[in-house]
Nucleic acid binder design. Structure first.
Length: 552
RNA sequence: GCGCCCGUAGCUCAGCUGGAUAGAGUACUUGGCUACGAACCAAGGGGUCAGGAGUUCGAAUCUCUUCGGGCGUACCA
């Protein structure tokens, strides 16, 4: 419908302007029903080049508008808006569209089946996942679902930094615990991890337990002199723990990539040599530097430390080169904003390699910190201190659906205060239940109706004329645009907001109108409308990874 | 110091690539279950969109600046 109106306007514009090629017609959905079903600001945009009053231009455009039976009336309003009012039968069409498309309603093919990789969570295997990881998980997974709904071929990937200084810390911490050294003891590693889970790992190691994570299986030797064995076991143990966290959150990855594998295969060393060859590196103060200032960084960065090891962004560059070589021309990295400095470095490294990677590749979605409130006070999230709200605790307290919704329902780039007491105490007032309740209500009515759902596609919908019905149909028709915009803006929270509005429309309609009335034609039309609403709610919840129960 | 993000109702937050009278939830006040599920609905009060300047027909939205908060600016990741 949008395309049809755009086309009509373009034809009208041709009578006023010689060159219509540069005209970009923007149609919007007015917030108020008084302003019609579609609104266009074309007259205001043309006011300047034509040097005429916007309202006059609007009048002329309307005069020149070709006739169309789907449009009931067109009028000028405000400063020069052209408002379109659709004919009633045109509005009904959306219900049939939805019933026919079913679970595919709202989906599109803008991705053209091309490959996209979404990397998210990517927590270090040094502890269980916490709320911040949960936000990354919720946003990343929802983003993946959105891209898939937009016709992309999505690969979900998790990258483990299972090499480097933090893993050394982990190993030393486990060793110390296995030796019976308390965390407050002077001989406990200075930057060691203090959490109680370290003691659990130490105990398991001494008991020579076996752990399985993804594709690896490690049995502890129990030998405290064997640091390599402690390291392998500890990493595997925590990867297993994180697997359980992810399972509790109902998140699945297609690929797990390991930093250690990049070292083992010699790929990291290859990258370093290629960077040296590129001429963008130099040695100074016993370290090897990458001249990232050649690529818009404000200072150069160390690649190889004095002690010989590489800094974290070197394997990151290698990893992203691998992504490119694997054919991902589109890559989205979802990560915490505290790591945002890595963006410039990774991109700089990729540019220095000069292998044809576009300048702004890859894309990033950064989420801001999650502060956790309990008892009116902020709970500090520190792996080393051990005071820790784990994702699994949270899921147990407030449920998987509610946790996912809360963490995905807000813009990623604003800080999030997760009040555990509130989430737990007000479970029934949670917006996710509000949406699910709308879905369950519809299911309940349909069950009592007991008719044949497939007959609804041919139902006569002319009875759907009340303001509530019009308003609901209008809301349903917005869903495809929301799905497309949320994906192109990489903003999954838009789905959550939309669903709340959609549920609200349904609840208002429900309280205002009885559906199961005696008049067969009216009843059938209403069954068709609420069935369409059910599809939209269900499809939307699916994009969030939240369930749509038939009864609650 | 420099860079990135944020600042909207008492609180938690929406506001799409600039549009019409700035919206929800929550809390507070009031009304609605002998109708298909009251985990719901309807109505009311509550705002200098942090402050200032600019761009233009028009700014919460774009630019500059001040203030406030977070993060980064590590040879941690």
């Amino acid at each position: 419908m949008k395309d049809i109106i755009s086309d009509l306007l373009l034809q009208a514009a041709k009578t006023l302007v010689a060159d219509t090629a540069s005209i970009n017609i923007i149609l919007e959905r007015p917030k108020s029903a008084d302003h019609g079903d579609f609104s266009c600001n074309l007259a205001m945009i043309l006011a300047k080049p034509l040097r005429q009053n916007p309202r006059t231009i609007a009048e002329q455009l309307i005069q020149a508008l070709p006739k169309n039976t789907q449009i009931e009336k067109v009028e000028v309003a405000g400063a020069g808006f052209i408002n379109f009012y659709l004919a009633a039968n045109t509005k009904h069409d959306i219900v049939k569209d939805i019933l026919q498309a079913g679970e595919h309603y709202g989906h599109n093919q803008t991705g053209k089946g091309e490959k996209v990789q979404v990397e998210f969570v990517s927590a270090n295997p040094t502890g269980p996942l916490h709320v911040g990881h949960g936000r990354g998980a919720a946003v990343g997974d929802c983003l993946s679902r959105l891209l898939a709904a937009n016709g992309w071929d999505v690969t979900r990937e998790f990258y483990y930094n299972d090499a480097g200084a933090q893993i050394d810390n982990l190993t030393k911490s486990v060793l110390a615990r296995a030796q019976g050294i308390a965390t407050d003891d002077a001989s406990f590693p200075e930057n060691g991890y203090h959490g109680e889970y370290i003691a659990d790992i130490a105990k398991a190691y001494l008991a020579k337990e076996t752990v399985v994570a993804d594709d690896i299986k490690v049995t502890a030797s129990g030998d405290l002199a064997d640091l390599e064995s402690i390291r392998h076991f500890s990493v595997a143990y925590l990867r297993h723990e994180q697997d359980l966290d992810l399972r509790a959150f109902q998140i699945q990855f297609d690929v797990f990539s390991l930093e250690s594998a990049l070292y083992a295969s010699g790929k990291v060393e290859e990258t370093v040599q290629a960077l040296i060859k590129s001429g963008h590196t130099y040695e100074e103060e016993g370290a090897l530097w990458l001249r990232t200032t050649d690529f818009e960084d404000d200072k150069d960065r160390v690649m190889r430390k004095q002690e010989g090891g590489y800094t974290y962004f070197v394997p990151d560059v290698t990893y992203h080169l691998e992504k490119w070589n694997r054919g991902f021309t589109k890559v989205i990295n979802e990560q915490g904003a505290d790591h945002h400095s890595t963006i410039t470095r990774v991109r700089a490294g990729l540019q220095a390699l000069n292998v044809g990677i576009p300048k702004g590749w890859p894309d990033y979605v950064l989420h801001q910190m999650v502060t956790v409130m309990r008892g009116g006070e902020e709970v500090k999230l520190s792996k080393r201190a051990g005071s820790y709200v784990t994702l699994r605790d949270l899921i147990e307290e407030v449920g998987c659906d509610a946790t996912r919704y809360f963490l995905a329902a807000r813009r990623a780039d604003s800080q999030l205060a997760f009040d555990i007491d509130l989430a737990r105490a007000q479970t029934n007032d949670n917006p996710v239940y509000y949406i699910q309740y709308a879905h369950a209500r519809i299911c309940s009515v349909l069950a009592q109706w007991g008719g044949d759902a497939s007959s609804l596609t041919s139902a006569d919908l002319s009875a759907l004329t009340s303001p509530r019905e019009t308003s609901l149909m209008q809301k349903l028709s917005e869903f495809p645009d929301i799905v497309q915009n949320a994906a192109s803006d990489l903003a999954p929270h838009m789905i959550a907001n939309y669903l709340k509005e959609c549920a609200s429309e349904l609840h208002s309609y429900y309280n205002d109108t009885k559906f199961l009335v005696d008049d067969a034609s009216t009843k059938l039309a209403r069954m068709a409308l609420i069935t369409a609403t059910r599809h939209v709610l269900k499809n939307g919840l699916a994009l969030l990874g939240v369930s749509a129960p038939n009864q609650m």
